[in-house]
């Protein structure tokens, strides 16, 4: 059971049961729908960006606890960060999930709870869904508005 308890930490279950920022943002600067075809996890991510800073993040979605908790935790972390800081955090998180030594793991805070997912290769995609969607959204936004 220890591996399972490592995976389903209380903070993850808490975000799954009570997701944060789970709401649509009307006319958001960034809106993307993405899914994991393998699992059927899906999210709609909404991001408002002002003066190069993430001012608001919301999501709608359904899927497993790992995918939904990860995106819920992400929305809390991203609010207020500059785009560059947000991208850096996303990449640090991705490095951790892929088992690479991340430079600044302290910045991850609560997100370290998702480290247990590493042991479940098929679930890593679930944990990354929100973050990859965010990175893709920022890229689309930058292309439209110039980075």
């Amino acid at each position: 059971m220890s591996d399972l308890e490592d995976l389903y930490k209380e903070v993850i279950l808490d975000h799954y049961r009570t997701p944060r920022n789970r709401a649509k943002i009307e006319n958001a600067d960034v809106h993307l729908h993405r899914d994991n075809p393998l699992c059927g996890d899906e999210i709609d991510l909404y991001v408002d960006i002002e003066d190069g800073r993430v001012t608001n993040v919301g999501f709608e979605g359904r899927g497993c606890s790992i995918s939904q908790a990860s995106v819920s935790m992400m929305t809390e972390k991203l609010k207020g960060l500059s785009i560059a800081e947000a991208e850096e955090l996303a990449n640090t998180f991705k490095s951790m999930m892929q088992g690479e030594a991340a430079e600044d793991e302290d910045a991850l805070g609560d997100l370290l709870a998702l480290q247990g997912v590493q042991k479940y290769p098929v679930r890593i995609k679930c944990a990354l869904l929100g973050w990859n969607t965010f990175l893709e959204g920022v890229k689309v936004h930058n292309e439209k508005h110039g980075a």
């Binding site: 699992c39 996890d41 899927g63 497993c64 606890s65 479940y120 679930r123 679930c126």
Partner: peptide, 9 residues
Amino acid sequence: IHPHDVGTI
């Protein structure tokens, strides 16, 4: 409970 959570547990 999402089936992927069930499957993993």
